[in-house]
Write a protein that binds this DNA or RNA. Sequence first.
DNA 1: CAGTGGTCTAGACCACTGG
DNA 2: CAGTGGTCTAGACCACTGC
Lengths: 257, 257
Amino acid sequence: MSTSAPIVPSPLVEAATPSFSPLYQQIKSLILQSLQAGEWKPGEPIPSEMDLAARFRVSQGTVRKAIDELAAENLVIRRQGKGTFVATHAEQNVQYRFLKLVPDSGDTQTEGPAERTIVDCKRLRAASDVARALALRTGDAVLQVRRVLAYAGVPTILEDLWLPGTPFKGLTAERLREWRGPMYAMFETEFGVRMVRAQEQIRAVLPDASQAALLSVSVATPLLSVERIAHTYNDAPMELRRGLYRTDTHHYRNALG
Amino acid sequence: MSTSAPIVPSPLVEAATPSFSPLYQQIKSLILQSLQAGEWKPGEPIPSEMDLAARFRVSQGTVRKAIDELAAENLVIRRQGKGTFVATHAEQNVQYRFLKLVPDSGDTQTEGPAERTIVDCKRLRAASDVARALALRTGDAVLQVRRVLAYAGVPTILEDLWLPGTPFKGLTAERLREWRGPMYAMFETEFGVRMVRAQEQIRAVLPDASQAALLSVSVATPLLSVERIAHTYNDAPMELRRGLYRTDTHHYRNALG
DNA sequence: CAGTGGTCTAGACCACTGG
DNA sequence: CAGTGGTCTAGACCACTGC
């Protein structure tokens, strides 16, 4: 079969992606579009490599390379003998994948999940910095949530987070309190929003009086300030999160490769 | 050609890696051994895929998959039309790849390289914590270096670092001061030690009096404490580094994927 | 057992680099 | 132009899963 002509009788690929790029990249972005459109939900299997190869009229190897990249970006999980599945934050394995604060002991297992307290959850208009971070306009409706996470009874994390009002319509403090499991898993199943990438800016700061009170520390205790912007598919920002971490019994762990 | 029998007439692979694993993994670890042994130096090209395929008696595709993984781990860099090269910290492109502190403006370009001051460089016996981090015994010889990095005249980073005495024999404050370019590049060319991976533990702390003086801040200024352990090939720890970062004009940036 | 992803091969052609 | 890595194919067989 010829290679130079990108597929023989099928406009499936060429139509969707006019400008040239390798076939497997085109396939990748087509799969990405399906993921984004919700054709397959988090946790569900996507079609087999053979099926996708038939659908796109390419060889299995080309589909394979496309899926390889999606798997490398944690958008999809391969399971030999079973299939390829849409990644989810509900996965036992990769729960709290974005939380880099670990106990100094390293035993993230024995510590168990945090005790969560929703301090506040209200609807308000976005200030300019929040709007900028979420790619909204100043004054647009946003949800603001404040919560505290405690480990072994010790309040360790204080988080303020802002969500765009439209996709998260209906989110309340009660629904947050009722939910068992990672917040990002809730966003997936309740609002169809999957966080796939994020970036954090970390600083050392001193808390103000109210922050210090919520974390049971003095205002002279240095804390880690972690500002995160989380993105969905296509890199649209969907969450701004400002965290204050106590680092007397925990530390932020980062791997450099 | 048969697939199940890992290679036909060649003991090259089986001999080196007795326990079973995919062929491309065996090839990968063989290449890794050559990198580790210094068969090809940082910046130099490794043999072409065809050459390696011939050497190991496997197909080009199998070598390709092995190199793909090495490239994904930043051990090697592929350049279309030119070859595959041993990665180096001297590379203009990926210089200071392990330094995550960036100016708040984001303009890491306009800021330029830091002004470096070697405060101290002495040979001493490893304390127990340093020994443990470097996989040495307490009392073994280590080098301790203290330096300050300043941006636009503002001292921003204070680093203490410990290196095992044996591989870094002959390292002096003078040689450090003379060197132009990243310290890790110097380790490569002068001592044959290439840092390939590292992990960092980050905390918020207050400086003691001497630290505060070196950074021109008060002892009440919260700072980022960054403890790094850097590893060579085969994950042998080769450096312990304790940094204090000012985060009034800079921040630690981290990407979560 | 059939179906899935995982490995391996052989061969073709493309895109880029340098002499 | 020859040599490099990059893409694509077709087909074989392996390893694992679940019925």
